[in-house]
Simulated assay, not measured.
Amino acid sequence: MIYIGLSGWGDHDSIYPARLNSKNKLAHYSANFPIVELDSSFYAIPPERNSVKWIKDTPDSFQFIIKAYQGMTGHQRGEIPYESKEEMFDHFKKSIVPYINAGKLAMVLFQFPPWFDCTKDNVAYLRWCREQMGDMPCALEFRHQSWFSPSFLKRTLDFMKKEEWIHSICDEPQAGVGSVPAVLEATSQLKTLVRFHGRNIEGWKKPASGENWREVRYLYRYNKNELTEWKKKLEALQRQTRDIYVIFNNNSGGDAADNGKEMITLLNLNYEGLAPRQLDFFS
């Protein structure tokens, strides 16, 4: 099965009524898409009360892809409020338990930064991360091109298969060592993740000016030809893996929701168990 969803649920105005209360957005989102990427967990590990609400706001079949906390992947924007990596991982794993108990955890996404290159120490850290996560399904996404260089490509994929990492395949700008090609190979027979970051090459790189680069990094709208090309790729991937989770992350201009809907139509997907459409009409 191919599941289509978006990164977060707050920035997709095209699918929400004008007066929709922000507290009800996830419930309305889940009337449109069967999965979501929880990206707020990257910035701070969410308290249990938030997770309980989000689980309650979504139908039984809904699935969450939960992004690993920034300190776990070496981003460390700001102070990390944990005395050790072990404590940090333990705190994060406890925050995932409600999703596991509800049967709503699709996977945890470990997205590593552009400076995380293919070295012996980094391979060892990936192995340690996987050990810490135990039986939880975990996806691995690289941003440094060295992992998929000709000399390391096969070994990278073999390592991911051996350590039971789900491959997070990316469509993103090809902008040098800080970007990776779309390697269309599943490393798990059960699950594969595909993330659409757009193809805005200039926005992908941090400009020298004072421009807020994060607001333009994912500024891109896929056209029908590009989506049709990926339709064929997704159908080919289905021969390698049981379920494919597709996330549109091109949110900067509000294009992700429309592109996600287009892909659902192109693939002729019909999801059962979505939330009712007539949610909170007077909210």
Rank of each mutant, 00 (worst) to 15 (best):
I15L: 05
Y16A: 07
P17H: 07
P17I: 03
L20H: 07
K23Q: 12
K23W: 11
K25M: 12
L26E: 04
L26Q: 04
A27Y: 05
A27Q: 09
Y29Q: 01
A31W: 01
N32H: 14
F33K: 06
P34W: 08
P34S: 13
E37R: 00
E37K: 07
S40H: 12
F42I: 03
F42H: 02
F42K: 05
Y43D: 09
A44C: 09
A44Y: 01
I45C: 08
N50E: 14
S51P: 09
S51L: 13
V52N: 10
V52K: 14
I55Y: 06
K56A: 14
D57S: 06
T58D: 06
T58E: 02
T58G: 05
D60N: 14
S61V: 10
F62C: 00
F62K: 00
F62T: 07
Q63A: 10
F64E: 02
F64Q: 04
I65F: 04
I65Q: 06
I66N: 00
I66V: 14
A68Q: 02
A68T: 01
Y69T: 05
G71R: 00
M72F: 05
M72Q: 02
T73V: 04
G74Y: 10
G74L: 09
Q76S: 15
Q76C: 15
G78D: 10
E79W: 07
I80L: 12
Y82P: 06
Y82S: 07
E83I: 13
S84Q: 11
K85D: 13
K85L: 15
E87A: 05
M88F: 01
D90R: 14
H91Q: 08
H91N: 12
F92M: 06
F92S: 08
K94H: 12
K94N: 14
K94Q: 15
S95G: 02
S95Y: 00
I96K: 07
I96M: 11
V97E: 15
V97F: 09
V97R: 12
P98S: 10
A102E: 06
G103C: 01
K104E: 01
L105V: 01
A106W: 02
M107W: 03
M107I: 06
V108F: 03
V108K: 05
F112C: 04
F112Y: 13
P113S: 11
P113D: 11
P114Q: 04
W115A: 11
W115V: 11
D117A: 14
D117I: 08
C118H: 13
C118L: 12
T119L: 06
N122K: 14
L126P: 07
R127H: 13
R127A: 12
W128A: 13
C129M: 09
C129I: 05
R130C: 12
R130A: 12
Q132G: 10
Q132D: 11
G134S: 05
G134I: 11
D135H: 03
P137Y: 03
C138R: 06
A139R: 06
A139H: 00
E141H: 00
E141Y: 00
E141L: 03
S146R: 07
W147T: 03
P150E: 03
P150L: 07
P150G: 02
S151I: 13
R155H: 13
R155C: 04
T156N: 00
L157M: 09
L157E: 01
D158A: 06
F159V: 03
F159K: 00
M160L: 08
M160W: 03
